[in-house]
Design a protein around this nucleic acid. Structure first.
Lengths: 215, 215
DNA sequence: TCACATTTGTGATTTTTGTCACATAGTTAT
DNA sequence: ATAACTATGTGACAAAAATCACAAATGTGA
C-alpha cells in the first residue's frame, strides 16, 4: 500500500501548527505557497503532502483552514486520545514535563517515572510520578503506547526494554544511545549533542571559508 | 568541491561518540560493521562516511580507534575551541545548560541571556547570565559563532535576528517556529512537539493495523 | 461571452541518499 | 609459497525525496 513517509508525517504536524496560528489570526483559507513560506518548504511539497492525506483544495481559493485542520487531525490523532509515559525526572525530564503541561488534551503525558524515591508519589508539573518498578504494569494496564526517555545514556536501553515490555509502541529518545528494540517499535531520536556539534561544524565552515553560501 | 552532506556530518558526530566509548572500554580498533551496529546504520554507509573525511582503514584490522577519533576531531572541531551562547533561561534552557555543563572543553556554553532581571548577573549551571540587551555586543566582542534558542515561540524570530546581528553563524533552535534569516546562517531545528506527535502517530498506526512491521 | 490571471493536482524528471557487490589487500594456516 | 578468510574502498545501481512544469479548474473583468 502507498504507505506514507515519516518526513511527510513530520511536516503535517508542522502544517497543522501553522494552520492553528492562522485560524487564531482570523484567516479562513490559505494557499500552498503561503504554507510553504511559513514552514520553510516549497509550494509543490506542501501540495504533495496534502495530497497524501487525501484532502483536496480548490484552485483559486486554496485550502479551507478549518477543513484542512480537521483532515490532518483525523489522520494523525487518535479520537480516543493518547496517553504518554515519561521516564527520567532529571533537569531535562522535568523541562519536557513543563513544556507539555496543559498541552492538547488528546496527547498528554499522564505518567512519569523515576528511581529517586524523593520524587515518587509527588505531582510534578501536573503529572503523577511513580517508581520505575511500576513502569511495565502501569503502561500495560493503562494501555499507554507512547513513551519518552529522559534518563542518562547508561540506563536508556534498560528503560526502553521495560517500555516495550509494557506494550509501548513508539518512543521519543533523548538519550544519546541507539536503542536496540524489536523493529515494530518506532523510535524517534532527539540528539541534542549531535545537533549542537553539527551547528558548531557549520559555524566553523564559515570561519574556514568566509565567502560561500552554506545550508 | 565535493561538499560533504549534513547527514554525514551528523553521523560522524555519532561515530565519534561511540569511538570514545569503545576506547574507554580499552578497544584499539573497530570494524565498519561494528560501528554500524552501534549506530544503527549499515557497514557500507559507515565506510562511505569515513571515506568522505579521507581517513582510510586497513583490511582485516578495520580502523584504529585513536587515529580515526583524531581524524574526525580535526575535521569537525575548531582547534581554537568554540564558544556557544544560549538564549532563554526557562525550564528548557536551564536543562540544556545543565546538560552541557562540563562538556568537552572545545565546545562550551559560555554565555547565557534572559529578559528576567532576577537571573541576570547570576551564574547558572556554571554559566554567567546577561541581559538580552547585551546579546549582540557580547557575541560580537567574543566572536561567538554558535547560538542556542530556548525562548518561547513568540520571541524566537527577534532573538534569532539579534544573534545574527551579533555575528552568530549557526543556531540550534528549540522554538517551534521557522526562523527567517539570511541563508548563509545554518539553523538546526529541534522540534520536540513534532517528535512527540510523530511518535504518537506511529503508535496509533500500530493500533489501527495490529499486524504490520512499521518503522 | 471570452480572454486572462491565479492556483491546484500530478506525471515526469532531477537530485539526493543509501545499498550492492566485487576487486583489492592484509592475515592466517598449512 | 599458496590457498582460504576477512575487511576495506568504491563504481554501479536502486530507492527515496524533492522539484519542475503543465493540464485542468476556478475566478475576474471587459
Amino acid at each position: 500500500m502507498p504507505s506514507i513517509s515519516g518526513k511527510t508525517i513530520g511536516r503535517l504536524c508542522v502544517y497543522r501548527r501553522q494552520l492553528q496560528r492562522l485560524r487564531d489570526e482570523g484567516k479562513s483559507n490559505v494557499y500552498s505557497h503561503q504554507l510553504a513560506a511559513l514552514t520553510g518548504g516549497s509550494a509543490a511539497q506542501v501540495r504533495r503532502d496534502l495530497m497524501a492525506i487525501g484532502y483536496r483544495g480548490t484552485p483559486y481559493h486554496g485550502y479551507r483552514i478549518d477543513e484542512l485542520s480537521g483532515s490532518i487531525a483525523s489522520f494523525l490523532d487518535d479520537p480516543d486520545g493518547q496517553e504518554v509515559a515519561l521516564v527520567g525526572l532529571g533537569n531535562l525530564g522535568r523541562a519536557i514535563l513543563a513544556y507539555f503541561d496543559g498541552w492538547r488534551p488528546h496527547l498528554t503525558i499522564t505518567a512519569a517515572f523515576d528511581v529517586d524515591p524523593g520524587k515518587v508519589d509527588r505531582v510534578i508539573h501536573g503529572c503523577k510520578c511513580y517508581a520505575i518498578a511500576k513502569l511495565e504494569s502501569i503502561t500495560r494496564r493503562r494501555k499507554i503506547a507512547v513513551g519518552v526517555i529522559c534518563v542518562p545514556a547508561r540506563e536508556a536501553q534498560t528503560v526502553a526494554e521495560k517500555l516495550a515490555g509494557g506494550g509501548v509502541k513508539a518512543i521519543v529518545n533523548f538519550a544519546p544511545r541507539r536503542l536496540h528494540l524489536p523493529d515494530d517499535i518506532y523510535v524517534e531520536d532527539i540528539d541534542v549533542t549531535t545537533a549542537l556539534e553539527k551547528a558548531a561544524f557549520f559555524a566553523l565552515e564559515h570561519k574556514r571559508q568566509p565567502d560561500s553560501k552554506a545550508k
